[in-house]
Design a protein around this nucleic acid. Structure first.
Lengths: 237, 237
DNA sequence: GCAAAGCAAGAGCACCGCTCTCGTTGTTGG
DNA sequence: CCAACAACGAGAGCGGTGCTCTTGCTTTGC
């Protein structure tokens, strides 16, 4: 990022990073509930009160971890998008979804941190909204590209209610994109539904119900992409 | 249930209920993380150690609340199903979904308790699986009735992968129901996706994205029902 | 070179989950 | 009927938590 000026600032950056790293390790091992400032300080060989020079409270440390988790998941999604560049829309869509699922399964506690119950306050801190949008934007890219190529089918089904269409227009304006109301509305629903599939698997709701998890997910996600209007060849799944 | 024998057992049942009630109040107000045995005991005018005569640990108290929450949500879903009896399949489907959403919005912390990050251990205690299935069974009833009436459309899209179909057959066997593999697979996905929609709204992921929450939900849920194969008239939404 | 700011350390506060002991009280079998 | 027993409430206490405040030391900037 920016050049580090003196030894003090460098030390501060390093200690801050070390705290976050140890905290992330604890969250990954035991979950956010078990994260303890004292344990982090102990592991780092400092006294607990010293840690408050770097994070004003436990919730602030957790918020930093939340931002990092959003960024890591977003990077995974964007990486999958880049790797699937040039392929069919539905394949790109599925690739991003698969990356989300795999990251979630590899980091269940960090996934729970961002898509489980919000643990500090009720409204997410402002700092989290940009990193949080990265997955959605990766998915949206697929839809936008398909639309630009004239390959996006109009979603079947009922007409979009006026208030919902207004939301879609406002959102399109905010993002500076061009997409039919129905398509953007359907995409928003698919975005939320994707995380329903992932959360149910990560949180154990599919126990004794779905065993072939990966195949089920691929199948469901492909259907989700088709419902969003992405074109498909007869064999794609 | 069973007749209460002596004064002691009656007292025990009453104290147990009072503890759960106060604990539920605390969870509803501050969330599961803030639930404190000592605070519950204090509020009930007893000493904290006495509470351990009724619940062996904090996690056991939480588990009891989880079971109650599943039951309350299940009852809401079943109530909606009963109220919508005799109406069109898609209306019944939407009614159950709406009941789930409304319960979740009315009891966000209790919803987070059951569909957010699992807070005690990783695998849900055995006692939770039956109450947890009530919502799914209410939704499934709609699909089964439509199928029995010959009104269920075959889901379009790719063929169901073999392993996924095997899961569907096994599940149909366990439940003692008759439903085509593709339909049951699609239903399972829709079930998870429904909770994606609800969780995103309850957990604040729709902030600054969807404002017309109720209309959006109704629209998305109707599409979900149609994707599952429920028949629809041109005007239903 | 010195004042100001940043920092680590320690003591301490109020709270937590949980355990153990000790009288008391309701239950029950002889 | 009453003695043995089991369940119970109260209290003290242990090790842990988040967080604050004070006390010196060190680095920084004028």
């Amino acid at each position: 990022m920016s050049a580090i000026q003196g030894a003090r600032e460098r030390a501060r950056a390093e200690v801050t990073a070390a705290i976050k790293e140890e905290a992330r390790r604890q969250v990954a091992r035991e979950g956010a509930v078990k994260l303890s400032l004292r344990a982090v300080a102990r592991e780092l060989g400092m006294v607990s009160s010293a840690l408050y020079r770097y994070f004003p409270s436990r919730d602030d440390l957790l918020t930093a971890l939340i931002v990092d988790a959003y960024d890591a998941l977003g990077a995974a999604a964007e990486g999958a998008l880049a790797t699937a560049d040039g392929r069919e829309p539905l394949e790109r869509w599925s690739a991003v979804c698969r990356a989300v699922r795999e990251w979630a399964l590899a980091h269940p506690h960090e996934y729970a941190l961002i898509y489980g119950s919000p643990v500090p306050g009720y409204s997410a801190p402002q700092a989290t909204v940009v990193p949080a949008s990265r997955v959605a934007l990766a998915l949206l890219t697929v839809v936008l590209d398909a639309h630009a190529a004239g390959a996006l089918r109009a979603p079947e089904g009922a007409v979009v209610p006026e208030a919902v269409g207004a939301d879609a227009r406002a959102l399109a304006g905010t993002l500076g994109i061009e997409l039919p109301e129905a398509a953007l509305t359907g995409f928003t629903a698919a975005w939320a539904q994707l995380f329903g599939l992932v959360s149910f698997e990560v949180f154990g709701q599919f126990n004794k119900v779905v065993e072939a998890r990966e195949e089920f997910f691929a199948h469901a996600v492909a259907a989700l992409g088709r419902a969003t209007g992405l074109p498909w060849t007869s064999q794609s799944d």
